[in-house]
């Protein structure tokens, strides 16, 4: 059920003990930054690309995130989970990048219909691509679904990364699924009416 990328990123992460490498990063082990960057960057980039507002600036945001991580590496507490710490910083970098690009409208507009380019990126199974699907959600729901599905974070980790509670994360995910269900149904009906396979 897990996506190819998730399998990749999770498998990659399983080879590296993130906690261990983070501690070595704090001790200035020269091998630690490269290992962490290699292990975490693909998922972080995917996280930024999945967010509609940040898609075009994902590479810049990735660099900005690593810059911030480097500056505040002393705030990581050994023994604590690394992923929520990293994603909390990435999230802040994303918000700043979002503000910088002044795409306020994308933050506020609740999309009732799937984006126009939905059909263009449609995979062979007839369903829209995950990125397009998530782009139809409000920002807060986009973030939660992306962290759960792309980042492979648990509910507890998403709650930590978003300075929220597990209950609030569950509620956002629930609303996101409700919305996606509605959108997908409309999409399927349109396809049937249009004679699509």
């Amino acid at each position: 059920m897990r996506s190819g990328l998730q399998e990749n990123s999770v498998a990659q992460r399983s080879f590296v003990d993130l906690d261990h490498w983070m501690e070595r990063y704090q001790q200035a082990d020269p091998a630690a930054p490269a290992t962490l960057i290699a292990a975490l960057s693909p998922a972080l980039l995917c996280f930024f690309r999945s967010q509609q507002a940040n898609r075009e600036h994902a590479d810049d945001l990735l660099q900005d995130t690593w810059l911030r991580i480097h500056r505040v590496r002393h705030t990581y507490r050994p023994g604590e989970p690394v992923l929520p710490w990293v994603y909390a910083i990435a999230r802040r970098a994303g918000v700043d990048g979002y503000r910088k690009t002044r795409r306020i409208a994308a933050h506020e507009i609740a999309v009732e219909a799937l984006p126009a380019r939905f059909a263009q990126s449609e995979p062979p199974n007839g369903l829209p691509a995950f990125e397009d699907l998530v782009a139809a959600l409000p920002e807060a729901q986009q973030e939660v679904i992306t962290m759960l599905k792309v980042g492979g974070l648990s509910l507890e980790e998403v709650a930590r990364a978003t300075s929220s509670t597990v209950g609030a994360v569950k509620q956002k995910a629930h609303r996101a699924y409700e919305r996606l269900r509605k959108l997908l149904h409309t999409y399927a009906e349109d396809n049937v009416a249009g004679g699509a396979p």
Binding site: M1, P42, C46, R49, A58, P123, N125, A129, F130, L133
Partner: peptide, 10 residues
């Protein structure tokens, strides 16, 4: 089905 879709590799 949509949640099982692969995410584009980045």
């Amino acid at each position: 089905g949509a949640l099982r879709l692969p995410v584009a590799e980045a």
